[in-house]
Design a protein around this nucleic acid. Structure first.
Lengths: 198, 198
DNA sequence: GTCTTTACAACTTACGAAAATTGTAACTTG
DNA sequence: CAAGTTACAATTTTCGTAAGTTGTAAAGAC
């Protein structure tokens, strides 16, 4: 049992919570490992036994947020409705979630954007999970699909204009209805196209 | 005839050329109106008679680059081949052009990215021209298309994952062949989808 | 032995003062 | 009169220096 009284996983979780709160309150650029440590009552060096560096702590913060988002979307995907509807909901909810996050927690959202810009594994892994969800829903929505994984990649790519974190930011001035309407139309066109080329 | 011996349009053009060269050489963030003026042999205040501000000068630099790009693509679009092929070429060349620019002139490319981030008119207008080209080619590739303008907007949106300047940057580590192959597949799927929903 | 602290070097950020830049108005020039 | 310069105020950037941060190794604590 460590001297802090917290198990390693508990300390990591606490560190992520503290870091998240500090980013929200003071800004992404102002996150200091020393501050997080002080708030946890340990020296900053103690945190390096749990995170390989500041970047790793940031990844954990982003990963935590992405996990919550993923769980939210999982509920949506598993809900009732035809496969195409659920696929559409997956995309729409994804955009809504990001738009809301960008407005409510702009600094935490910036952490996410930075992780994306830097092609961090935590974001890349999340993308793969998303693609897997798409593949599963596509396999249902388009019977006899030759290669659901390939199709999912195509659909995902066509969605980046709407869902990429930097583009979500860029589109904040455009009404959500307009974005969603366009997303629906693109998605529908892609699905029809996949049905026509299987 | 102005005291510089240059007509207004000539001076503007010279200023754009000088600014471009300085951005390429010293970086986007280092562009100074005062330096451009000095190199032109005028006071910096004289430039404000031709540009409404530094931002306007930057827009002119980006606009100049976009004009060259547009002319390059115009040749491509007007070339031989079936409409779908030409549409495909329009997209592929667009991505190639940007990838090359990002590698060859990263600072000038950053000027373009900043203009995009800031939703500057010069970039928005360029997007409209591009969409118009798409609409024209789509009208040929998909006979009896109800609304070519709407369809063009959808195709354009599906292409942002590949063509948006920030995403082009993000994709630089991915081989060009892979990007292009995916783009082709998405485009083809969109076209088949449009044919199936007209 | 595990987990932490302390100490430290290399690097980054903060800060204040000075310098430079931007945009504008008044003035000058041809 | 058009087109430029000079002068100026507000703002931004630069720069040197001090303070702070990051990551690591050695030492300490339980």
């Amino acid at each position: 049992m460590p001297r802090t009284g917290l198990a390693p996983e508990e300390l990591k979780q606490r560190a992520v919570e503290v870091a998240s709160a500090r980013i929200k309150a003071a800004g992404y650029a102002k996150l200091r490992v020393t501050d997080v440590a002080a708030e946890l009552g340990v020296s900053h060096a103690a945190l390096y036994g749990h995170f390989s560096g500041k970047a790793d702590l940031l990844d954990a913060v982003v990963g935590h947020w992405l996990d919550i988002a993923r769980d939210t979307l999982l509920v949506t995907v598993s809900g009732p409705g035809r496969p195409e509807e659920r696929l559409e909901t997956l995309m729409i909810e994804r955009v809504r979630l990001k738009r809301a996050a960008a407005v409510r927690d702009p600094e935490l959202y910036e952490a996410y954007c930075q992780a994306t810009d830097r092609l961090r594994d935590v974001v890349q892994c999340h993308k793969l999970v998303w693609r897997d969800q798409i593949a599963r829903l596509l396999a249902e929505a388009v019977p006899d699909l030759n290669d659901p994984a390939k199709a999912a990649l195509l659909v995902q790519s066509s969605m980046y204009g709407f869902t990429h974190p930097r583009l979500v930011l860029e589109n904040l001035d455009t009404p959500g209805d307009e974005i969603e309407s366009r997303l629906r139309a693109v998605l529908h066109t892609m699905i029809v196209g996949l049905r026509g080329t299987r």
